[in-house]
Amino acid sequence: MQKTHDHKALWLVAPALLLVAFTAVIPLMTVVNYSVQDTFGNNQFFWVGTEWYREILRSDRFHAAFLRQIMFSATILAIEIPLGLAIALSMPKKGLGVSVCLVLMALPLLIPWNVVGTIWQIFARVDIGLLGHTLNGLGIDFNYTQNAGAAWATLIIMDVWHWTSLVVLLCYAGLVAIPPAYYQAARIDGASRWAVFRYIELPKMSRVLLIAVLLRFMDSFMIYTEPFVVTGGGPGNATTFLSVDLVKMAIGQFDLGPAAAMSVIYFLIVILVSWAFYTIMTREDFEPSGGAR
């Protein structure tokens, strides 16, 4: 929409633009700069072109990390979105229960990432952790430092525990915004519970669901702190996701060039996949109506 020109607004936006420039654009450009050069220390750089990109894209190590990353994101989305929806649908819509539920739901979201990691690192430990010890006591071989499956399970349960609330809160906000007349009309039309969900709740919630999926995808795709704290990427490389791998490469091995190239590729993948999600979900069938007019 074409608005009246107002230069004051520019000044209001300026600080944010500056902040973004310093925190995002300039570091990103630096990374791009590193990704096309090689260095032998002493601040000596020379041009290598797309060498690092080709190396990264061909490396088995990158492929493996990428696959793990996709698996992880897909799994947590497949669990958190339906689970979050289900919880939101079963939450009370009025009364005292609402605030109790909302506070309970918000709790995990208030805990910092590294603390969440630490909690689960201890919780799942075989020797002193409640979960790990109990499971082993029941005869189940559960040790996330040795068993890849156990490490994955720990990370996924942790993420579900930490982030399903976000999906719940978003869905709940979408649900309570549906005018009561829709439910009344559906009852009168003799619609089943499933039909109410399928034809009223889901279409009206599609916008917030899109936001939930996007947020959860981007966040899980870039997960670092928790696996770093809990498993350190192990056992072996079983939970070495892209970000963990990237840090290993950049800080552990000090391979600045390849790490930079990998960062750029990583960045592009996140943007591309987010865009794909957005396009698919805003296609005609998914778009909610413009409201009562």
Partner: peptide
Amino acid sequence: KPPEARNIAQVFQFPVIYDTM
């Protein structure tokens, strides 16, 4: 008896339609 068991129809102030249908 609940509305669905009463065999009545109701038209509301604002149009209620099923968006995706």
